[in-house]
């Protein structure tokens, strides 16, 4: 810490000296935020609006030009069975994973909310998989799901069961991706819940213990009400995150079989960067943005109402 003397005489002199910092608004203070704002405007705000504009262009592959087409791309999307399929796949994936993230995340947090070493080691295990990249996770899970020779198939055989072809079955491919995703990133909701649990004052539980309240009772009447806000944060965060499913699907099942596990982002990626229908892909990305915003906002307002009641 710098050694500062607070003699009033010196203070007056300091404010008057032009080299020193003055208290109060000053345009030069904006220089602190300016560097970030350049990146923000150029690489986020501008592409956001440019993307909306691009979604209304029809590009011509042959002479590399594009013309304004209004909502034609959107109209085409709503009639594109593959796109509609990707929307349902993504929604189904969100519906499958978000409740599990919340439930298992909370259960693990409750069980591991302790300062002893065992709990710390177990927390490290459950969070540890989250630091792996999607590429590594999918290599591991492809090996797990491999028909015939895979780990899960071997376990099935061990118990005399017919191995289930997870990633090649159109009804199970998304489930397989969901299992792999939960294994991968359960750590984050767990940690968020742990942080919330540690904010609950211990006296509340002491009072409950004096009342001889059961574990179950104190969970419903103390724990749950105390972590309401985190619960909402986790739900909204997971909804937004799981709508962005891409790498697991692209690497584990390639969206197959028969588009059964193709999510919206993979559709955007393939239309945009494999088929180079940039306008079409941009329109799909705006729809994804809209669905995510609506889902998150709906969850926010529903929970808010419940909190107020």
């Amino acid at each position: 810490m710098t050694d500062v003397t607070l003699s009033p005489g010196k203070a007056v002199a300091a404010v008057k000296r032009p080299t020193g910092a003055s208290i109060g608004p000053r345009w030069s203070n904006a220089l602190f935020v300016a560097p970030y704002l350049v990146f923000y405007v150029v690489l986020l705000v501008y592409p956001l609006f440019k993307g909306i504009w691009m979604s209304m262009l029809e590009s011509d592959m042959f002479d590399n030009t594009s013309k304004f087409a209004g909502l034609a791309n959107y109209h085409r999307l709503f009639n594109d069975k593959i796109f509609i399929g990707t929307v349902w796949n993504t929604v189904w994936f969100v519906v499958m994973t978000v409740p599990v993230f919340v439930a298992i995340g909370l259960l693990l947090a409750l069980a591991l909310n302790s300062s002893d070493r065992t709990a710390a080691a177990l927390r490290a295990i459950f969070f540890g998989t989250s630091v792996l990249s999607v590429t590594i996770v999918t290599i591991i899970w492809k090996m797990m799901y491999m028909p015939g020779n895979g780990a899960i198939a071997s376990i099935f055989k061990l118990f005399g069961l017919q191995p289930v072809a997870f990633i090649t079955s159109s009804s199970l491919a998304l489930v397989a991706i969901a299992i792999c995703t939960i294994w991968w990133i359960i750590g984050l909701p767990m940690m968020l819940f742990l942080a919330a649990l540690q904010q609950i004052p211990g006296e509340l539980y002491e009072a409950a213990a004096l009342d001889n309240a059961s574990r179950w009772r104190s969970f419903w009447s103390i724990t749950l009400p105390s972590i309401k806000r985190t619960l909402l944060v986790v739900v909204i965060y997971e909804i937004v995150a799981q709508f962005q499913l891409f790498g697991q699907a692209q690497l584990l099942t390639q969206g197959g079989p028969n588009n059964a596990s193709r999510p919206i982002v993979q559709f955007i990626y393939e239309q945009g960067f494999r088929s180079w229908n940039l306008g079409y892909a941009a329109a799909a990305s705006e729809i994804l943005f809209l669905i995510m915003a609506v889902a998150a906002l709906a969850q926010f307002f529903v929970s808010r109402k419940r909190v107020e009641e």
Binding site: L44, P47, G51, V240, F243, I268, G272, A282, S285, L288
Partner: peptide, 8 residues
């Protein structure tokens, strides 16, 4: 989200 800006 990243996807909303990635094409532009």
């Amino acid at each position: 989200p990243e996807q909303a800006v990635i094409i532009a």
